[in-house]
C-alpha cells in the first residue's frame, strides 16, 4: 500500500489525489494542520475521526469548496491554485455527494442530473438524458425522473445526488457523510450504490461513520483528529490492531456505543 509521500519525486502517474502539508485556517482557528495524503486511481479511502476533527474541511479542500492557505493539492495532475481555469477543470473531474443531498428543488430529477452535463460539458440534451437515465436505472429509481426532489424520500434523494455526480463522468468521487441524514432503512440503499461504485473501480474518498462499510469496501482508512492525520492503515489493521492511543480510544467509544 502507498505510504505518505515525502517528496514530489515520489508522485506516481497513477496518483490522482496528492495533498502535501495542507494547512487551512478559519480566521485564527487552524482546522488543518499540515495534512499529507496520496490516493491512487481506483482506490477507495474512508476518512474517520471524531466530530470537529477536520474531515469535512479536508475533503472540501479537494474540490476547492474550501480554500487551503498553505501546502499543495494536486488533483489528476492539475494543481489547485487561484487560477479559475484550474478550479473549474478539477471540479469537472471530481464529483461530490453531500450529507444534505443539496438537490436543486426547482428542477425535476432529470433536470437536476442533466444541468451540469449540458451547461458545463456542453453535451446535447439527448446525450445527457440518455446517460442520466442509465445512472438513474443503476441507482434503482428510473421511474422518478420527472418528479421534483421534494416528492422523493431521503434515500431516493441521495441516490439522485449520486446519479447527478456520476453523470458528469468524474474520475474521483467525494462523499461527505452521505448517509448521516437518512433513516436506517434508507442507509443501506445508499451504501449498496456506493459499494457498487467501488467495485466498478471509481476512485472514492468518503467520510462516513458506517464502520461496516469502511471495513468491507475501503482499501485504506484514514483517521483524523485535531486537524491532523493520526493514522493511515488497512481496514483490518485499523480495526483490529490500531497503532495509536487516540485511535483506540475512538474505536472503543464507537464500538461500545
Amino acid at each position: 500500500m502507498t505510504a505518505i509521500m515525502d517528496g514530489p519525486e515520489a508522485t506516481k502517474v497513477s496518483d490522482v489525489i496528492v495533498c502535501r502539508d495542507v494547512h487551512k485556517w478559519y480566521g485564527d482557528f487552524e482546522a488543518l494542520k499540515g495534512v499529507n495524503l496520496t490516493v491512487e486511481a481506483g482506490e477507495v479511502v474512508v476518512i474517520l475521526g471524531p466530530s470537529g476533527s477536520g474531515k469535512s474541511t479536508f475533503i472540501r479542500c479537494m474540490n476547492r469548496l474550501e480554500e487551503h492557505q498553505e501546502g499543495r493539492i494536486i488533483i489528476d495532475g492539475i494543481e489547485l491554485t487561484h487560477d479559475v481555469r484550474n478550479i473549474s477543470e478539477i471540479r469537472r473531474e471530481v464529483g461530490m455527494v453531500f450529507q444534505q443531498f443539496n438537490l436543486f428543488p426547482h428542477l425535476t430529477v432529470m433536470d437536476n442530473i442533466t444541468l451540469a452535463p449540458i451547461n458545463v460539458r456542453k453535451w446535447s440534451r439527448d446525450r445527457a438524458e440518455e446517460l442520466a437515465m442509465k445512472w438513474l436505472t443503476r441507482v434503482g429509481i428510473p421511474e422518478q425522473a420527472d418528479k421534483y426532489p421534494g416528492q422523493l424520500s431521503g434515500g431516493q434523494q441521495q441516490r439522485v445526488a449520486i446519479a447527478r455526480a456520476l453523470t458528469m463522468q468524474p474520475k474521483i468521487l467525494l462523499f461527505d457523510e452521505p448517509t448521516s441524514a437518512l433513516d436506517p432503512e434508507m442507509i443501506s440503499e445508499v451504501l449498496d450504490v456506493m459499494r457498487d461504485l467501488a467495485k466498478a473501480g471509481y476512485t472514492i474518498v468518503a467520510v462516513t461513520h458506517e464502520m461496516g462499510f469502511a471495513r468491507e469496501v475501503a482499501q485504506r482508512i484514514i483517521f483524523m483528529d485535531g486537524g491532523q492525520i493520526v493514522e493511515i492503515n488497512s481496514p483490518d489493521d485499523f480495526f483490529n490492531n490500531p497503532t495509536h492511543e487516540r485511535t483506540k480510544l475512538f474505536l472503543s467509544q464507537i464500538l461500545n456505543h
Binding site: 474540490n63 476547492r64 469548496l65 473549474s88 471540479r91 469537472r92 471530481v94 464529483g95 461530490m96 453531500f98 444534505q100 443539496n102 438537490l103 436543486f104 444541468l115 451540469a116 451547461n119 458545463v120 445526488a161 447527478r164 455526480a165 458528469m168
Partner: peptide, 17 residues
C-alpha cells in the same frame, strides 16, 4: 441555502451559471 451554491460549484458550474 448555502448547500445549493456548494452543489452548483461542486458540479463545475461557473459563477454566472
Amino acid at each position: 441555502s448555502k448547500g445549493q451554491t456548494e452543489a452548483a460549484r461542486a458540479l463545475g458550474l461557473s459563477e454566472g451559471q
